[in-house]
């Protein structure tokens, strides 16, 4: 069969680490899998601006406000690079947005948690962006060219995000006892949601095997999660903060940290839309999109006017 031959050639390219480009032949499942993953990733960047905007007007200094604004602007940029990468697979921007608004497309569940103190801006940068970076560094090696190139660019920009977050945590941890408690409280609330960002354990992950075979993903959820935990513990301990996991322990024989049971009921509950902020996040995105409609219409009318002028000239 023609398709069998093409499929074999496709797998050969993947195995030889040759990137797949938009106009190359690819299995339909590869295309659909990528559209799902890239658009979910893009939605996460865009929805991820919301928990941070909550503190934009209340940032404790002009310096902090400027940095937070720059970070939020970067997230918007990352969303747009990723939407463009998804579009190279033949899906339209409108379709991708509609799926989000209809609740059919997911975004990272971590953004459904509320940001109730300034310390949360620190915890998000340090832990949530820290976890995202571990995932994104790995995805630079993804087999789909446009996705890989977007990841390279995003990783270059993300490193400041994690440092700015960690700096907020450092400042609080070295401050008054109350400020240190704020940092500890944020760590207590953001630790497990960050650990869950890597998704279900490998044995329960629906898309993992095929994704690894096609090199859409290069490492498994559990491998990435372990890497994040291993590098983060020291960063908290150096500040005298503790992690909300009594089972967390360095394991000499494996060279990794052992960690406690993840509350998967909570994870699935938030994924299914029942987290503290799911409804609000989606509602806000839909409203922002609808409120921007007149701008899009005006821009179209203006472009039409420009076009008719150049035609008559």
């Amino acid at each position: 069969m023609e398709d069998q031959k093409k499929l074999a050639e496709f797998q050969e390219k993947i195995d030889a680490d040759i990137k797949i480009e938009p106009r190359d032949w690819m299995p339909e499942k590869y295309r659909q899998n990528l559209i799902r993953q890239i658009s979910q990733h893009a939605h996460s960047e865009i929805i991820g601006m919301q928990p941070e905007k909550n503190w934009l007007t209340r940032a404790p200094s002009i310096r902090a406000k400027k940095i937070l604004m720059a970070k939020i602007q970067d997230e918007a940029g990352h969303g747009l690079y990723l939407y463009c990468a998804a579009e190279t697979l033949g899906v339209k921007r409108e379709q991708v947005l509609n799926l989000l608004h209809e609740g059919k497309a997911k975004y990272s569940s971590v953004f459904n948690y509320p940001t109730i103190s300034w310390a949360d801006m620190g915890a998000i940068g340090w832990l949530v962006d820290g976890a995202a970076i571990v995932n994104q560094v790995s995805l630079q090696g993804t087999s789909y060219g446009p996705y890989s190139r977007a990841m390279v660019k995003i990783c270059m920009e993300e490193s400041f995000h994690q440092r700015q977050g960690y700096e907020i945590v450092v400042t609080l941890a070295k401050g008054t006892p109350e400020q240190k408690q704020m940092a500890q409280d944020a760590l207590n609330r953001w630790w497990w949601p960050s650990v869950m960002m890597f998704g279900p354990h490998d044995a329960e992950s629906a898309h993992s095997n095929q994704s690894l075979k096609w090199k859409i993903k290069r490492e498994s959820n559990d491998e990435l999660r372990q890497r994040f935990i291993d590098k983060t513990i020291h960063q908290g301990e150096i500040l005298g903060l503790t992690f909300p996991d009594p089972d967390l322990k360095w394991n000499e024989s494996t060279g990794h940290y052992d960690y406690g049971e993840i509350d998967w009921d909570e994870f699935w509950n938030v994924v299914k839309g029942n987290g503290p902020g799911n409804k609000q996040r989606l509602k806000h995105h839909i409203e922002a999109h609808e409120n921007g409609k007149w701008v899009r219409e005006a821009a179209i009318a203006y472009a039409d006017k420009l076009n008719s002028k150049t035609k008559t000239a």
Partner: peptide
């Protein structure tokens, strides 16, 4: 990379910002 915009001027501003 790429971007969406309705006319040249808007595309240029967006390219600068993005």
């Amino acid at each position: 990379g790429s971007l969406h915009a309705y006319d040249k001027k808007m595309a240029m501003t967006a390219a600068r910002d993005l």
